[in-house]
Computed example of a mutant assay.
Amino acid sequence: MQHPTVRRAGAMIAGALALSLTVAGCSTDAEEPAAGASSSSGADSSSVAQSVDEPSLEFAGPNGEVPGTLEELTLTENEAASIADGGYTAAFVWHTSSEFVDAVEKGATDQLAELGVEVVASTEAAFDAATQANNVESVMALDPDIVIGIAADPTSAAQSFQPIVDAGKQLVIMTTPPAGYSAGDQFVSIVTESLTDAGRANAELLGDAVGGEGKVAYLFHDADFWFTNQRDQAFKDWLAHSYPDLEIVAEEGFTDEARTEEIAAALLLKNPDITGIYVPWATAAQGVLAAVKAAGRTDVAIVTNDLDTTLAADMAAGGNIVGLVGNGSLDIGRGLAIAGAYGLLDKEAPALVASPPVKVTADNLSEGWLADYGVEPPASVQAG
Rank of each mutant, 00 (worst) to 15 (best):
V375G: 12
G15I: 11
I248D: 04
F235D: 04
A379S: 08
M174Q: 07
G296D: 00
A349W: 11
D143S: 12
A240W: 07
G168Y: 06
L21Y: 04
A91F: 05
P378F: 08
G149T: 12
V300N: 08
S97A: 14
A133F: 12
K270C: 01
Q186D: 05
Y243R: 13
D308T: 03
A290D: 01
D143I: 12
P62A: 14
V210E: 01
D85N: 15
A167L: 05
N78E: 11
A113W: 06
A133S: 05
A351S: 15
A179R: 01
G107E: 02
A183H: 03
A258V: 00
T275M: 13
L268S: 02
A209R: 11
P350C: 10
P272Q: 06
A14W: 04
V119N: 02
A49P: 10
D222S: 07
D256T: 00
A240M: 13
H95A: 08
G323D: 05
A133N: 08
S329R: 14
A141W: 08
V120L: 03
N364H: 09
E376H: 15
L352F: 14
A108G: 05
G328P: 09
P280M: 06
F100E: 02
A35W: 01
N327I: 10
Y243S: 14
G276T: 11
E247F: 09
P178N: 01
T304G: 04
V360N: 08
N305S: 09
L269P: 01
V52S: 14
G276N: 15
D331E: 14
A217Y: 00
A379H: 09
F220I: 05
V288A: 00
W226R: 10
A133G: 13
P62M: 15
A158N: 03
N202S: 13
P356H: 12
G61E: 10
F227E: 05
